[in-house]
Amino acid sequence: MAEKEILVEVKNLNVTFGKGKSQFEAIKDVSFEIYKGETFGLVGESGSGKTTIGRAIMRINEVTGGQILFKGKQINGKIPRDWDREITQKIQMIFQDPMASLNERAKVDYIISEGLVNTKKFSNEIERQEKVRNALLQVGLLPEFASRFPHEFSGGQRQRIGIARALVMEPEFVIADEPISALDVSIRAQVLNLLSKLQQENNLTYLFIAHDLSIVRFITDRTAVIYKGNIVELAETEKLFNNPIHPYTRALISAVPEPNPHKERNKTVEIYDPSQHNYEKNPPSFVEVEEGHFVLANEEEIERYRETQKLGVSQ
Protein backbone atom coordinates (compact mmCIF):
# COMPACT_ATOMS: atom_id res chain seq x y z
CA MET A 1 0.00 0.00 0.00
CA ALA A 2 1.40 3.37 -0.97
CA GLU A 3 2.58 5.57 1.86
CA LYS A 4 -0.05 8.20 2.31
CA GLU A 5 1.23 11.71 2.70
CA ILE A 6 0.06 13.49 5.83
CA LEU A 7 -1.18 16.93 4.93
CA VAL A 8 -2.60 18.18 8.22
CA GLU A 9 -1.70 16.95 11.65
CA VAL A 10 -3.31 17.93 14.91
CA LYS A 11 -1.37 17.03 18.05
CA ASN A 12 -2.79 17.20 21.57
CA LEU A 13 -4.81 20.23 20.67
CA ASN A 14 -6.31 22.24 23.49
CA VAL A 15 -8.49 25.28 22.98
CA THR A 16 -9.66 27.01 26.10
CA PHE A 17 -11.78 30.14 26.12
CA GLY A 18 -11.71 32.75 28.83
CA LYS A 19 -9.54 32.94 31.88
CA GLY A 20 -9.62 31.93 35.48
CA LYS A 21 -12.82 30.66 36.99
CA SER A 22 -15.00 31.23 33.96
CA GLN A 23 -12.82 29.49 31.45
CA PHE A 24 -14.22 26.90 29.13
CA GLU A 25 -12.26 24.03 27.59
CA ALA A 26 -13.81 23.63 24.16
CA ILE A 27 -11.17 21.21 22.92
CA LYS A 28 -9.48 19.14 25.56
CA ASP A 29 -6.90 16.90 23.98
CA VAL A 30 -7.43 16.12 20.34
CA SER A 31 -5.03 14.43 17.96
CA PHE A 32 -5.55 13.20 14.42
CA GLU A 33 -4.02 13.24 10.95
CA ILE A 34 -5.51 14.04 7.60
CA TYR A 35 -3.99 12.45 4.52
CA LYS A 36 -3.59 14.22 1.24
CA GLY A 37 -6.52 13.72 -1.10
CA GLU A 38 -8.92 12.28 1.43
CA THR A 39 -12.17 13.59 2.86
CA PHE A 40 -11.92 13.49 6.62
CA GLY A 41 -15.17 13.73 8.52
CA LEU A 42 -15.58 15.28 11.94
CA VAL A 43 -18.91 14.46 13.52
CA GLY A 44 -20.42 15.79 16.70
CA GLU A 45 -23.45 17.46 18.14
CA SER A 46 -23.79 21.02 19.34
CA GLY A 47 -21.24 21.86 21.97
CA SER A 48 -18.90 19.07 20.93
CA GLY A 49 -16.22 21.44 19.70
CA LYS A 50 -16.15 20.37 16.08
CA THR A 51 -16.51 23.91 14.75
CA THR A 52 -13.83 25.10 17.13
CA ILE A 53 -11.37 22.60 15.69
CA GLY A 54 -12.10 23.82 12.18
CA ARG A 55 -11.57 27.38 13.29
CA ALA A 56 -8.40 26.54 15.13
CA ILE A 57 -6.94 25.03 11.98
CA MET A 58 -8.05 28.11 10.06
CA ARG A 59 -6.32 30.08 12.80
CA ILE A 60 -9.46 31.99 13.60
CA ASN A 61 -9.39 30.65 17.14
CA GLU A 62 -6.25 30.70 19.19
CA VAL A 63 -4.71 27.47 20.30
CA THR A 64 -4.00 27.20 24.01
CA GLY A 65 -2.14 23.93 23.91
CA GLY A 66 -0.74 21.44 21.41
CA GLN A 67 0.14 21.92 17.78
CA ILE A 68 -1.34 22.06 14.35
CA LEU A 69 0.96 21.10 11.52
CA PHE A 70 0.53 21.58 7.81
CA LYS A 71 2.89 19.60 5.64
CA GLY A 72 4.97 18.96 8.72
CA LYS A 73 5.38 22.59 9.70
CA GLN A 74 3.62 24.25 12.59
CA ILE A 75 0.89 26.72 11.70
CA ASN A 76 -0.47 27.76 15.09
CA GLY A 77 1.05 30.45 17.24
CA LYS A 78 3.65 32.82 15.89
CA ILE A 79 4.91 31.87 12.45
CA PRO A 80 7.09 33.57 9.85
CA ARG A 81 5.37 36.00 7.50
CA ASP A 82 5.78 34.19 4.22
CA TRP A 83 4.70 30.88 5.73
CA ASP A 84 1.66 32.70 7.07
CA ARG A 85 0.85 34.03 3.63
CA GLU A 86 1.34 30.65 2.09
CA ILE A 87 -1.06 28.87 4.39
CA THR A 88 -3.61 31.64 4.14
CA GLN A 89 -3.81 30.74 0.52
CA LYS A 90 -3.49 26.99 0.86
CA ILE A 91 -6.05 26.45 3.62
CA GLN A 92 -9.57 27.73 2.90
CA MET A 93 -12.94 27.43 4.57
CA ILE A 94 -16.53 27.05 3.44
CA PHE A 95 -19.05 28.26 5.96
CA GLN A 96 -22.36 26.92 7.06
CA ASP A 97 -24.90 29.63 6.60
CA PRO A 98 -24.97 30.95 3.06
CA MET A 99 -27.36 33.67 4.14
CA ALA A 100 -24.96 35.05 6.72
CA SER A 101 -21.49 34.34 5.38
CA LEU A 102 -21.58 36.68 2.41
CA ASN A 103 -21.22 40.44 2.65
CA GLU A 104 -24.60 41.75 1.56
CA ARG A 105 -23.17 45.08 0.51
CA ALA A 106 -20.54 43.66 -1.80
CA LYS A 107 -20.87 42.44 -5.33
CA VAL A 108 -20.15 38.79 -5.97
CA ASP A 109 -17.08 39.86 -7.92
CA TYR A 110 -15.68 41.56 -4.85
CA ILE A 111 -16.62 38.75 -2.52
CA ILE A 112 -14.79 36.19 -4.59
CA SER A 113 -11.76 38.37 -5.23
CA GLU A 114 -11.20 39.59 -1.71
CA GLY A 115 -8.75 36.85 -0.87
CA LEU A 116 -6.89 37.32 -4.11
CA VAL A 117 -6.56 41.02 -3.52
CA ASN A 118 -5.29 40.57 0.01
CA THR A 119 -2.63 38.08 -0.96
CA LYS A 120 -1.85 39.82 -4.26
CA LYS A 121 -2.10 36.60 -6.14
CA PHE A 122 -2.56 38.11 -9.56
CA SER A 123 -0.52 40.39 -11.76
CA ASN A 124 -3.18 42.53 -13.36
CA GLU A 125 -6.89 43.23 -13.55
CA ILE A 126 -7.45 40.97 -16.56
CA GLU A 127 -5.95 38.03 -14.71
CA ARG A 128 -8.07 38.71 -11.64
CA GLN A 129 -11.25 38.80 -13.70
CA GLU A 130 -10.22 35.54 -15.41
CA LYS A 131 -9.76 33.85 -12.06
CA VAL A 132 -13.17 35.03 -10.85
CA ARG A 133 -14.75 33.86 -14.08
CA ASN A 134 -13.19 30.45 -13.79
CA ALA A 135 -14.18 30.08 -10.18
CA LEU A 136 -17.81 30.84 -11.00
CA LEU A 137 -17.83 28.41 -13.91
CA GLN A 138 -16.29 25.69 -11.81
CA VAL A 139 -19.08 25.91 -9.27
CA GLY A 140 -21.71 25.88 -11.97
CA LEU A 141 -22.64 29.56 -11.95
CA LEU A 142 -22.69 31.97 -14.87
CA PRO A 143 -19.80 34.45 -15.09
CA GLU A 144 -22.23 37.36 -15.39
CA PHE A 145 -23.30 36.68 -11.78
CA ALA A 146 -20.15 38.48 -10.75
CA SER A 147 -21.85 41.83 -11.06
CA ARG A 148 -24.79 40.92 -8.82
CA PHE A 149 -25.41 41.06 -5.11
CA PRO A 150 -25.91 38.12 -2.74
CA HIS A 151 -29.56 38.82 -2.05
CA GLU A 152 -30.38 38.13 -5.66
CA PHE A 153 -29.46 34.49 -5.24
CA SER A 154 -31.01 31.43 -3.62
CA GLY A 155 -29.46 29.56 -0.70
CA GLY A 156 -27.90 26.94 -2.92
CA GLN A 157 -26.44 29.53 -5.24
CA ARG A 158 -25.05 31.52 -2.35
CA GLN A 159 -23.33 28.46 -1.04
CA ARG A 160 -21.78 27.98 -4.47
CA ILE A 161 -20.52 31.55 -4.29
CA GLY A 162 -18.99 30.69 -0.93
CA ILE A 163 -17.31 27.70 -2.51
CA ALA A 164 -16.08 29.80 -5.43
CA ARG A 165 -14.59 32.21 -2.94
CA ALA A 166 -12.58 29.42 -1.38
CA LEU A 167 -11.67 27.87 -4.72
CA VAL A 168 -10.31 31.00 -6.34
CA MET A 169 -7.40 30.90 -3.92
CA GLU A 170 -6.28 27.58 -5.35
CA PRO A 171 -6.11 25.89 -1.98
CA GLU A 172 -4.85 22.46 -1.11
CA PHE A 173 -6.90 21.95 2.00
CA VAL A 174 -10.53 22.99 2.43
CA ILE A 175 -12.41 22.97 5.70
CA ALA A 176 -16.12 22.62 5.03
CA ASP A 177 -18.04 23.55 8.17
CA GLU A 178 -21.55 22.11 7.81
CA PRO A 179 -21.73 23.30 4.22
CA ILE A 180 -25.12 21.82 3.46
CA SER A 181 -27.12 21.83 6.70
CA ALA A 182 -28.74 25.14 5.90
CA LEU A 183 -29.79 24.07 2.42
CA ASP A 184 -32.95 22.50 1.10
CA VAL A 185 -32.91 18.75 0.75
CA SER A 186 -32.77 18.61 -3.04
CA ILE A 187 -30.08 21.28 -3.19
CA ARG A 188 -27.92 19.35 -0.76
CA ALA A 189 -27.33 16.61 -3.26
CA GLN A 190 -26.27 19.13 -5.89
CA VAL A 191 -23.78 20.84 -3.61
CA LEU A 192 -22.37 17.54 -2.37
CA ASN A 193 -21.83 16.40 -5.92
CA LEU A 194 -20.15 19.69 -6.68
CA LEU A 195 -17.79 19.32 -3.73
CA SER A 196 -16.84 15.82 -4.90
CA LYS A 197 -16.25 16.98 -8.44
CA LEU A 198 -14.10 19.88 -7.30
CA GLN A 199 -12.09 17.58 -5.11
CA GLN A 200 -11.18 15.38 -8.03
CA GLU A 201 -10.55 18.23 -10.45
CA ASN A 202 -8.43 20.28 -8.11
CA ASN A 203 -6.75 17.62 -6.03
CA LEU A 204 -8.29 18.88 -2.82
CA THR A 205 -8.23 17.49 0.69
CA TYR A 206 -11.35 18.10 2.77
CA LEU A 207 -12.10 18.35 6.43
CA PHE A 208 -15.85 17.87 6.48
CA ILE A 209 -17.49 18.99 9.69
CA ALA A 210 -21.09 17.88 10.14
CA HIS A 211 -23.71 16.57 12.49
CA ASP A 212 -25.67 14.67 9.84
CA LEU A 213 -24.31 11.16 9.95
CA SER A 214 -25.93 9.95 6.76
CA ILE A 215 -24.19 12.66 4.75
CA VAL A 216 -20.93 11.92 6.48
CA ARG A 217 -21.21 8.25 5.69
CA PHE A 218 -21.66 9.03 2.04
CA ILE A 219 -18.96 11.55 1.49
CA THR A 220 -16.08 10.81 3.87
CA ASP A 221 -13.21 8.34 3.75
CA ARG A 222 -12.40 8.44 7.44
CA THR A 223 -14.40 9.88 10.31
CA ALA A 224 -13.72 11.08 13.83
CA VAL A 225 -16.51 11.32 16.38
CA ILE A 226 -16.13 14.14 18.86
CA TYR A 227 -17.90 14.52 22.18
CA LYS A 228 -17.40 17.45 24.54
CA GLY A 229 -13.95 18.35 23.34
CA ASN A 230 -12.54 14.86 22.97
CA ILE A 231 -12.38 12.51 20.05
CA VAL A 232 -13.99 9.32 21.21
CA GLU A 233 -13.59 7.26 18.08
CA LEU A 234 -11.81 7.46 14.75
CA ALA A 235 -11.89 5.00 11.88
CA GLU A 236 -12.45 4.44 8.20
CA THR A 237 -16.01 5.56 7.67
CA GLU A 238 -17.50 2.22 6.73
CA LYS A 239 -15.73 0.48 9.59
CA LEU A 240 -17.06 3.10 11.96
CA PHE A 241 -20.65 2.67 10.86
CA ASN A 242 -20.51 -1.10 10.66
CA ASN A 243 -18.71 -1.56 13.91
CA PRO A 244 -19.07 1.38 16.28
CA ILE A 245 -17.37 0.69 19.58
CA HIS A 246 -17.55 3.73 21.79
CA PRO A 247 -20.94 3.99 23.50
CA TYR A 248 -21.37 7.57 22.31
CA THR A 249 -20.76 6.60 18.72
CA ARG A 250 -23.26 3.80 19.10
CA ALA A 251 -25.84 6.13 20.59
CA LEU A 252 -25.28 8.65 17.84
CA ILE A 253 -25.63 6.12 15.06
CA SER A 254 -28.69 4.50 16.57
CA ALA A 255 -30.37 7.87 16.86
CA VAL A 256 -30.14 8.65 13.16
CA PRO A 257 -33.55 8.08 11.61
CA GLU A 258 -33.43 5.58 8.77
CA PRO A 259 -35.77 5.75 5.82
CA ASN A 260 -37.17 2.32 6.54
CA PRO A 261 -40.39 2.25 8.54
CA HIS A 262 -39.92 -1.19 9.95
CA LYS A 263 -36.35 -0.74 11.03
CA GLU A 264 -37.25 2.59 12.55
CA ARG A 265 -40.21 1.38 14.53
CA ASN A 266 -38.58 -1.67 15.93
CA LYS A 267 -35.38 0.06 16.73
CA THR A 268 -34.42 0.87 20.28
CA VAL A 269 -32.42 4.02 20.41
CA GLU A 270 -29.31 3.65 22.50
CA ILE A 271 -28.80 6.36 25.04
CA TYR A 272 -25.36 7.55 25.99
CA ASP A 273 -24.70 8.03 29.67
CA PRO A 274 -21.39 9.81 30.18
CA SER A 275 -21.27 8.77 33.82
CA GLN A 276 -20.68 5.16 32.84
CA HIS A 277 -17.01 5.92 32.46
CA ASN A 278 -14.83 5.65 35.50
CA TYR A 279 -12.02 7.92 34.43
CA GLU A 280 -10.93 9.26 37.80
CA LYS A 281 -8.95 6.20 38.76
CA ASN A 282 -8.17 4.96 35.32
CA PRO A 283 -7.77 7.68 32.68
CA PRO A 284 -8.42 6.73 29.09
CA SER A 285 -6.13 6.83 26.10
CA PHE A 286 -6.63 6.61 22.39
CA VAL A 287 -6.28 2.93 21.59
CA GLU A 288 -6.04 1.23 18.22
CA VAL A 289 -8.43 -1.71 18.45
CA GLU A 290 -8.10 -2.79 14.85
CA GLU A 291 -6.16 -1.36 11.95
CA GLY A 292 -6.89 2.32 11.61
CA HIS A 293 -9.72 2.13 14.15
CA PHE A 294 -9.14 4.07 17.36
CA VAL A 295 -11.27 4.37 20.48
CA LEU A 296 -10.95 6.55 23.55
CA ALA A 297 -11.05 4.16 26.46
CA ASN A 298 -9.19 2.94 29.51
CA GLU A 299 -7.88 -0.60 29.90
CA GLU A 300 -10.95 -1.96 31.58
CA GLU A 301 -13.18 -0.65 28.83
CA ILE A 302 -10.94 -1.97 26.08
CA GLU A 303 -11.30 -5.42 27.60
CA ARG A 304 -15.06 -5.09 27.57
CA TYR A 305 -15.18 -3.80 24.03
CA ARG A 306 -12.95 -6.60 22.78
CA GLU A 307 -15.34 -9.10 24.33
CA THR A 308 -18.43 -7.67 22.67
CA GLN A 309 -16.56 -7.30 19.41
CA LYS A 310 -15.64 -10.96 19.45
CA LEU A 311 -19.24 -11.89 20.00
CA GLY A 312 -20.06 -10.04 16.82
CA VAL A 313 -22.43 -7.58 18.49
CA SER A 314 -22.18 -4.64 16.14
CA GLN A 315 -25.63 -3.12 15.92
Binding site: V185, S186, R188, A189, Q190, L192, N193, S196, D212, S214, I215, R217, F218, I219, E258, P259
Partner: peptide, 20 residues
Protein backbone atom coordinates in the same frame (compact mmCIF):
# COMPACT_ATOMS: atom_id res chain seq x y z
CA UNK B 1 -38.73 8.42 -6.54
CA UNK B 2 -36.50 11.45 -6.87
CA UNK B 3 -36.95 12.41 -3.22
CA UNK B 4 -36.07 8.98 -1.97
CA UNK B 5 -33.21 8.62 -4.44
CA UNK B 6 -31.54 11.79 -3.28
CA UNK B 7 -31.20 10.44 0.25
CA UNK B 8 -27.55 9.97 1.12
CA UNK B 9 -28.40 6.54 2.49
CA UNK B 10 -29.08 5.50 -1.08
CA UNK B 11 -25.93 7.05 -2.37
CA UNK B 12 -23.15 4.82 -3.56
CA UNK B 13 -19.81 6.01 -2.39
CA UNK B 14 -17.63 7.28 -5.16
CA UNK B 15 -20.60 7.87 -7.39
CA UNK B 16 -22.61 10.97 -7.92
CA UNK B 17 -25.52 11.40 -5.54
CA UNK B 18 -28.87 11.55 -7.27
CA UNK B 19 -30.11 15.12 -7.50
CA UNK B 20 -33.17 16.53 -9.15
Amino acid sequence: WALISSLPQLGVKGEVLYSI
